[in-house]
Design a protein around this nucleic acid. Sequence first.
DNA 1: GATGAATGAGCATTCATTCAT
DNA 2: AATGAATGAATGCTCATTCAT
Lengths: 191, 191, 191, 191
Amino acid sequence: MSSTKERIFKAALETFSKRGFYKATMDEIAEAAGVAKGTLYYHFKSKDDILDFLIDEGIKRLKQQAIEEISKVNGAIEKLKRIVFVQTNFLYKNHDFIIVLLSQIWGHGDVPRRFREKLSTYLEIIEKVVKEGKEQKLLADCNEKLVAAAFFGMTTSILALKVIREEETVDTQEITDTVFNFALNGLKFYH
Amino acid sequence: MSSTKERIFKAALETFSKRGFYKATMDEIAEAAGVAKGTLYYHFKSKDDILDFLIDEGIKRLKQQAIEEISKVNGAIEKLKRIVFVQTNFLYKNHDFIIVLLSQIWGHGDVPRRFREKLSTYLEIIEKVVKEGKEQKLLADCNEKLVAAAFFGMTTSILALKVIREEETVDTQEITDTVFNFALNGLKFYH
Amino acid sequence: MSSTKERIFKAALETFSKRGFYKATMDEIAEAAGVAKGTLYYHFKSKDDILDFLIDEGIKRLKQQAIEEISKVNGAIEKLKRIVFVQTNFLYKNHDFIIVLLSQIWGHGDVPRRFREKLSTYLEIIEKVVKEGKEQKLLADCNEKLVAAAFFGMTTSILALKVIREEETVDTQEITDTVFNFALNGLKFYH
Amino acid sequence: MSSTKERIFKAALETFSKRGFYKATMDEIAEAAGVAKGTLYYHFKSKDDILDFLIDEGIKRLKQQAIEEISKVNGAIEKLKRIVFVQTNFLYKNHDFIIVLLSQIWGHGDVPRRFREKLSTYLEIIEKVVKEGKEQKLLADCNEKLVAAAFFGMTTSILALKVIREEETVDTQEITDTVFNFALNGLKFYH
DNA sequence: GATGAATGAGCATTCATTCAT
DNA sequence: AATGAATGAATGCTCATTCAT
């Protein structure tokens, strides 16, 4: 990625996150990137194309990190923990991305559908681990598709709500632990 | 609510859900409602105002149902189950609402912030039940704010993904059970 | 004029003056008059019709007062003085009217043309007095049409500028004297 | 001023004068200027902004000419004559401007107020000359603010009425003489 | 006489996109 | 590679007017 394209990428992510995709204008992105408006069109076909690129890149990076991380350990439970950890950290470090993603995946149009499909390729990683866990009798019987969605929804909700609120510096380790513990053991109190 | 306003309300919800808030035009809403465009402005101040009203009403109704339902039973765990049930059913019956809500609550602007604040008043109901459960030693120690967010994120993710996909008729009872079981017992396999 | 029409008349004059004819809305007029919007259309054909009526009435009243006043005295000069006096007082007491009038008479459209024609019937009163004065060798030779326009322009400019500025209470007698003296003797200093 | 902006400037002046500011549409201005509607917004922020610019420029040019002209002669009376001359000629040559100006300066809103303030900077030039004339015992004692307003009101009234009527070619020299003579010597007949 | 809900033509404004330089 | 002036289709919104009650 050329340095100019990189700058546009970052500026767009920031602008979409701050203003929302629709309210963000090409003028704003250009200004944030420090380039002329025409330059955006040299590097991207359209505004939609920038969004596509952003989502693509984001999910690609998230997947890479998840795959890399779970390859380091053995056992479905340990792998799951790593996934929660990666997810939390990634979303925390890339909250602009998650805000943009979460604003775009719901809805019936072609665009949200395409984004959901991309996201699915990430969720499949989780599903696979859950399935493994079930087979290894480490995890209880469950619908792994539902569980993957639940995992993702849980983590993003918690994180997005905290991050967006620009609260106190978020302790990602605490969230990782909470989510993981919640997911594994549930809320029931054991005497 | 006058009958005209009611019709606009429903048309707007449907249109926003189908097309997305920004792509939906006032002309489309008017046509869907079977009124003239000017009539929209007789009942609402602006397009944003319609959205506001939609979110307000939706959350108000969700809260009403949740409160009513948990008043019927005793015990935090039973109450929690009812909440999951209401949430699932409400969101399933009002999937247009949930799509609109989920598309609008993320982001840094004033609008998403306001919507999150409204949503918080619903989450507080869950928090209260969780807190009760902890005090009664029915639920494990946990951060109830995080748990409430997790509950909401989990349910909506599962549901929205199913609903949007216009999948097979969704079995809300199954989802209720899955979510509740997951939340209560976690994923760990017990020998 | 029925009491309702009278109220609309006053409300319209005030609203047009405060907001300008185009910015003023029928809603504002109705509210100022304390009636429903539909009622305006019971008494007047249209917004333009209200303006017409306002201008008509205003000029009619100005003419009446001028005619009555000049009938009280003899001699062109004395009559001219009375005209200046009436004009100043009337415009002061009816500054809403003068503001509306002055905003509408310039321009090429049919409406300003019609208003100028109505105003002409007042200017003719001045012209006639000036003509008389010339014939009686009391006033210097001059183009009475130009002089009448000058008279009107002079007085309204002075007054409007003072009145609009909502300055100190305007001393109409002083203005009358100044204008009259200026008009009669000019600015030249006589040694 | 870029050539495009210049063309918009002229087209707007003509359109506002012909149709009135409020009846004139951006489409009309664009067409008159031979540019696309969007181009108007590339050079001006809004329709109001165009009006602002027009009034600014007009008054600036009128002031420039007046200042230049009175610098050519000595003596308050001669200067005054030049002012009347410039005013008459400028307004005649720029009757579109004067029509727009006169339609906009009356009223209580912020816009007319701002325009009056701009116009005041021109009137101050007249005031200064009148003051000089008084000090030099060339002009009678008078309120120079009132006199300046009177001068302006007199000239514009005469001119606007003539110009709008699209009468016979206006003889600006005759008007200059009439106004100047009227202003200097008054209407009284001297035996 | 009076009301106010409903209308829809009209308009200012926005903004992604193009293209000549 | 980069620019920025110009475009025009698209759209939210206004508001005078109508009419059934």
